[in-house]
Design a protein around this nucleic acid. Structure first.
Length: 184
DNA sequence: CCCTGATTCGC
DNA sequence: GCGAATCAGG
C-alpha cells in the first residue's frame, strides 16, 4: 500500500480526531502503526494540538542498528484490517457511551423477578469495540449488538488468562446462566 | 505484559 | 519518502 492522497487525507482526519497511530493503521489497512507515525512526522502534523513541549527527547540511540536482515520496505502484505469498524484501544474522546449506558443494553436480559435478583450488581465496563480480527487470546470475546449490523463488535477488554470474557462479562454470563436455569 | 508516540537510519 | 527497529514512557 502506498500513501495516496485519499489515504493521507484519512490519516490527517483520524489523527486530528485523536485516534492513536495503531488505531489509524487498523483503519487504513496495509500499514503498521510505525508507518503511520512516520508519515505523521513527515507531514509535520505531530504534537496534535499540545502546545507544551515538556522534556522533549534528549536521548538518542544512534549506536546499535546493525542487523540488516530487515524486510526492506515491507510496504505490502499483512494486516487484513477491518473495514469500517473503529478499532480502538482506549478511545480518548469522541462521545462514547459510558459504562452505565452500556449496562443498560443488557438490562433487557436481566429483568426477571426482582425478588430473586442478587444484591451484587454486575458492572460491565465500557467496551473497546474490537472487530473479530482484532481479538486476541487476552481480549474479551463478548459479542455486542446485532451481528447483521455494522455496529456489531466485541467487548475487547482484557480477559486475563484462560477465560474468554472480561470480569464484568464473565459475571454477566454466570448471572444469565443461573437465570435461565431458574426459569426452566 | 499491554499500550503510546518519537527517533534513527538503511533502504 | 518510507517504515522497521528501537527507545522512552504510561
Amino acid at each position: 500500500m502506498s500513501w495516496t492522497d485519499e489515504r493521507v487525507e484519512l490519516l490527517k482526519k483520524l489523527w486530528a480526531d485523536g485516534l492513536s497511530a495503531s488505531q489509524i493503521a487498523n483503519q487504513l489497512g496495509g500499514v503498521s502503526r510505525n508507518a503511520v507515525i512516520g508519515k505523521v512526522h513527515r507531514l509535520k502534523l505531530s504534537s496534535r494540538g499540545r502546545a507544551s513541549q515538556k522534556p522533549a527527547r534528549p536521548k538518542k540511540p544512534s549506536a546499535p542498528r546493525q542487523p540488516s536482515a530487515r524486510t526492506g520496505t515491507a510496504t505490502a502484505s499483512q494486516r487484513p484490517s477491518v473495514s469500517s469498524v473503529v478499532a480502538s484501544q482506549s478511545m480518548p474522546r469522541t462521545s462514547s457511551a459510558g459504562a452505565t449506558a452500556l449496562k443498560a443494553d443488557y438490562a433487557i436480559d436481566e429483568v426477571a423477578e426482582p425478588v430473586f435478583q442478587p444484591a451484587e450488581e454486575v458492572v460491565v465496563p465500557m467496551s473497546r469495540r474490537l472487530s473479530l480480527l482484532e481479538l486476541t487470546e487476552r481480549t474479551c470475546k463478548w459479542p455486542v449488538g446485532d451481528p447483521l449490523t455494522e455496529d456489531f463488535h466485541f467487548c475487547g477488554n482484557d480477559s486475563g488468562e484462560g477465560t474468554p470474557y472480561c470480569q464484568g462479562h464473565a459475571q454477566l454470563a454466570y448471572q444469565q446462566n443461573t437465570e435461565r436455569r431458574r426459569n426452566r
